[in-house]
Write a protein that binds this DNA or RNA. Sequence first.
DNA 1: AAGTCTCTCAGGGTAAACCCTGAGAGGAAG
DNA 2: CTTCCTCTCAGGGTTTACCCTGAGAGACTT
Lengths: 219, 219
Amino acid sequence: MIEKIKVHIADDHKILIDGLSALINTEDAIDLVGHSLTGKEVIEWFKKNKADVLILDINMPELDGIDVLKIFKNRKVKQKTIILSGLSDPKIVQEMMSLGARGFIEKGVAGEDIIPAIKAVHRGEKYYSKDIKSSLFDFLLEDSKTEEAIKSSAVVEPLTDREIAVLKLITKEYSTSQIAKKLDLTVKTIETHRRNLYKKIKVKNVVGLAIYAVKNNIV
Amino acid sequence: MIEKIKVHIADDHKILIDGLSALINTEDAIDLVGHSLTGKEVIEWFKKNKADVLILDINMPELDGIDVLKIFKNRKVKQKTIILSGLSDPKIVQEMMSLGARGFIEKGVAGEDIIPAIKAVHRGEKYYSKDIKSSLFDFLLEDSKTEEAIKSSAVVEPLTDREIAVLKLITKEYSTSQIAKKLDLTVKTIETHRRNLYKKIKVKNVVGLAIYAVKNNIV
DNA sequence: AAGTCTCTCAGGGTAAACCCTGAGAGGAAG
DNA sequence: CTTCCTCTCAGGGTTTACCCTGAGAGACTT
């Protein structure tokens, strides 16, 4: 008997996990061996168990998909990962790929894609849903360029605690001086944190920060 | 033979539609009679067909769930609607309810909730997933207060085409003067649109606009 | 002990955001 | 034909965001 492909799903929307489970259960060659609702659960689960393929949502509370991949990269966990993403922000696609993701599926595409994606990735291939392919990032998927492009790619540097605190207050529509009062710091300090956020996230102004915050569940 | 409950699903994430379909198909008493990926499709579908229950995502491009409900309210379409929502923003919950939604399910909850929700709503009851119930909006669900609270609630006025165009450019991190050039208008005009956006969306600055745009898929 | 990183703060500047009021033109609807 | 709405634009104002440079204190690393 041929071994089934073991799959683990991680998504903070349980309704999506349940839906995908039902879909995957229609396929004999694939076995759903676990699921997680948060990044932390994924890490914990993989300490004790193993799966061939991990279907990973990027937007999760606490530890998000990016954090999970970073941790897995260091620990050399060798499952193959398919990213589930609502929005295909170029920066994130690049980052995920540089962190070893093998597949990328937009939530906007048909559910039938999930089965071929699992099989392809398990065979060692890469898999991208059509919308990603046809997007402006085609160049990224052409192998020769890929590796280099990834290495020099726009990976968002990790934010410090203070920066996240400031970012959260910014998204609450507080001005720099209001944030300064709130955190009992000078305006100049907040301005510095602000500028560092711009640099790290590679955006031009608060708007970019706000969008980043929402997309990354920092709100 | 008892008639099956006819259900229509609308969500811009096809993967979620497919998942829910698989779930719903396990239930004999319920019949999936259609699905839509955009608000427009929902409207068109209901012109020619009918369903007992509509499962409606609030975040959809073009026409969102709120717009759909508004249109249905005017046309007195009499299907029962269950809202599917990623984020349970109080303003939106209130608005949806005032527009006649009968059920409210967070995407974060278990998929098993969907079947009882459909049945309950079809029987004429209201249905809210646990997270909603246990949230700070309990008071809203106590009938006496509900109606009044809804009438005076923070309903976001519909945005005009120009306003949406400006909002989109704002989220691309363009400054007012850059937007003016792009749209071939004066800076003063853009400023006016900006201020009107603040009023309508009830936010204080660009940050609020950006967040609203992302959450409502205007990005 | 010399880096490296985070967090803090400063001076001094330009550009942009934000606020107030007022208003005309054109289209849609009553 | 008047009312309502959208879109356009203006004068003149305050406040905030944003840019550049520089720097000290404390923690942690190698």
